[in-house]
């Protein structure tokens, strides 16, 4: 069970309170062609390493936030509020 730090609740809560909503910082294209729609709808970083993703605190505050997580160890490096730019990662 992962422990996830909700940046709104400012509490570390169990994974079962959350759902993961996929890769973060996806920009919906304007006046897109087929290739841009493909990129937005389907192509994903699928990073082996630090992955930026959205989480939804469905059984808590009910808000979306972003997280940086290492997909090899599943360790959360940090979480931050939705709308903020990709942050610098803290040094290990």
């Amino acid at each position: 069970m992962l422990l996830i730090d909700c940046p709104y609740c400012e509490q570390e809560r169990a994974e079962i309170e959350f759902t993961c909503s996929g890769e973060a910082h996806m920009q919906k294209p304007q006046n897109a062609d087929d290739a841009q729609w493909e990129k937005f709808l389907f192509l994903r970083a699928n990073t082996k390493g630090v992955h930026y993703e959205r989480w939804y605190h469905v059984h808590g505050c009910g808000r979306y936030f972003n997280a940086a997580r290492d997909t090899i160890s599943d360790k959360f490096l940090l979480t931050y509020k939705a709308g903020l730019p990709k942050p610098e990662l803290p040094n290990e």
């Binding site: 994974e15 993703e53 997909t71 090899i72």
Partner: peptide, 13 residues
Amino acid sequence: EQYVSYAQRGPLH
């Protein structure tokens, strides 16, 4: 599981 992972292990729940 619901999140991208290469850990090859998952949670007990």
